[in-house]
């Protein structure tokens, strides 16, 4: 039997619906809510049921065509993982290094990962851009951007 995208998708949503349904049963109810026509569990329970029916429906009617099999070749997963890793690091760096430094490093890292190697381009496309955005946010829009814990600990404030 040919496993296709439909089968994988159906199976994932079947598992998701089971898990969702399990946690739907854990939602705390207020006293007397058990007998109320509508409580915090009503919609989640209904969604669990609909999710299960649709997942089974997808599995039953899934395409068995070889052309619909999941093909992962030809995709650059490594680069995507690095980029998403960079985004996650940017998230952490914002707290520690502050908006300006984190932005410069994120942009430099992004350009570098995507193949830009010319030092002049790397600097011109990151430093003035980050400075411009920082100025617009802090001076024009009057948004407070924390300086970053590293700088606060080093220089106080």
């Amino acid at each position: 039997m040919q496993i296709t995208k439909d089968h994988i998708g159906g199976l994932i949503f079947l598992l998701l619906s089971f898990t969702y349904g399990y946690y739907a049963g854990q939602i705390p109810l207020l006293p007397g809510d058990d007998f109320a026509p509508f409580n915090a569990q009503t919609l989640p329970n209904a969604l669990t049921l609909i999710g299960l029916v649709l997942s089974v429906g997808l599995l039953v009617t899934a395409s068995r065509d070889k052309a619909d099999a999941l093909k992962l070749s030809g995709y650059d997963f490594s680069l995507v993982a690095k980029l998403l890793g960079l985004v996650a690091i940017f998230g952490c760096a914002l707290d520690w290094l502050g908006f300006f430094v984190a932005t410069v490093l994120f942009l430099l890292g992004g350009y570098w990962l995507l193949g830009e190697r010319r030092p002049k381009t790397l600097l011109v496309a990151s430093l003035p851009f980050a400075a411009g955005i920082w100025l617009i946010l802090t001076q024009l829009l009057d948004i407070y951007l924390a300086p970053g814990r590293v700088f606060s600990q080093l220089f106080g404030g």
Binding site: F106, L107, A125
Partner: peptide, 11 residues
Amino acid sequence: PRPILIPLILF
């Protein structure tokens, strides 16, 4: 160039 544009859109 896309290597410049993509990080900016991500940002």
